[in-house]
Design a protein around this nucleic acid. Structure first.
Lengths: 236, 236
DNA sequence: AAGTGGTCTAGACCACATT
DNA sequence: ATGTGGTCTAGACCACTTC
């Protein structure tokens, strides 16, 4: 276990469990160095991650302080700071999928540009409705190049595609770019997400990357408006 | 100018201007150390920021690579990586405001908990419609504690409150927590944002912090659905 | 085996805030 | 004047990838 990860986890636990209460000043970096018997840069790295997670603020000349946040705020922040598929995100709940479509097709213009493909490249096109505890959460349309993700079958789409990528193919997911938008629902969406006519939806367009910089997924998720909230922390 | 900022800006310019084209491998950190005559940690800091901005990927044992992104993608990422008020975000456009409400009121329950106030604390309540090039973009309802932001006047609300905070009060804005949601529009919102009946809206709830860890702003923005998109990069 | 980026150190010096 | 966190260094050692 890396030192800065261990220190980070320790401090995060102290914050979430209230050992370091709201507005409480953290020990000075110098003192944390002594406590953990590490150098200043290692402490700084751990604290900087807590800053990026939105849990603390640092102020030169004064010290570091825990932000005033409710337990719910803290919980939402910790979820927001992790990139996971639906299955992992709701790991405490029953996640199921209805597979509406699973085909291998030639890439179209949009997918080609999002995934940096050439004409005649083939992609999986998968449409799934994702349920959490039997409640429909979203309709996911996913495109993946068959060259990067070989051997994908219907059974994986019914479970977790991300598990297949990470555990069977042993690939590493690095990052994702997301764009969130809003619009009116279509009749198709109303039917599958149990929406009323005129209800709105949120769309999340995502391009996800492996650690070798190749884009392996372009997806669009249509979310039920009442079951969607997106959290983020922005640092200046 | 800090060394890592200078190197960061240099490399970002090379990426956006295509000097380092798509899929191109960046020089090795060792070589960048020589080129800029700095130590390894300084180069690493600059590159790590580019990773967090979503522009490059690093792979141990191989090197660092520019992501395959269109110029539009890159532009959106750079905007997404900055926290700014509406005025600064659309600095190339004409930003105006219609002031619907400007009062000092006792804090209510929600505002009190978001801003960590005590009962009987007073806050500004400001409701504005923000126009970009005369098109209504959003309705902003803003609460700020009078103790932290003294002397705010109607004239500031008609211009940029963030400018007043930074330039007149000389306070430093550190971060913001945002929650994005979706719902149907109300008659009030339809009127002011030029929406049709049944049109949806996006809400952005924000708590913003100064660098001394105090929450100075709680705001809710109601965005026209067609003129709203939110970009983000998520790193594993 | 060689080379990459990742972690960690011990210490110098700086910018900022409080006293 | 003192003490905080921020930057930067030169170098050691490690984990991973490629050859």
């Amino acid at each position: 276990m890396l030192k800065y990860i261990k220190i980070l986890n320790n401090l995060r636990t102290e914050i979430t469990q209230g050992v370091l209460p709201e507005n409480h000043q953290l020990p000075f970096e110098k003192d944390l160095c002594e406590k953990y018997n590490v150098s200043k840069m290692t402490i700084k790295k751990a604290l900087d991650i807590l800053v990026s997670e939105g849990l603390i603020v640092k102020k030169r000349g004064c010290g570091s302080f825990v932000k005033n946040l409710s337990p719910e705020d803290i919980n939402r922040l910790i979820i927001a700071n992790h990139f996971r598929g639906v299955s992992a995100l709701y790991s405490n709940c029953k996640v199921t999928s209805k597979l509406l479509y699973f085909e291998i097709i030639p890439t179209d213009e949009i997918t080609k540009s999002k995934l940096n493909l050439v004409p005649d490249d083939f992609v999986y096109k998968i449409i799934r409705i994702r349920y959490v505890d039997d409640i429909p959460m979203c309709i996911e349309t996913t495109f993946m190049p068959i060259e990067i993700i070989p051997g994908l079958k219907r059974e994986h789409a019914l479970q977790s595609i991300y598990s297949y990528i990470q555990e069977n193919l042993n690939l590493k997911i690095q990052s994702a770019h997301r764009t969130i938008r809003v619009r009116k629902s279509t009749a198709f969406e109303q039917e599958h997400l149990l929406l009323n006519k005129h209800d709105p939806i949120a769309t999340v367009e995502q391009v996800a990357y492996l650690d070798n910089s190749s884009a392996f997924e372009y997806s669009v998720s249509i979310h039920h408006y009442d079951r969607f909230a997106f959290e983020t922390v922005i640092i200046r």
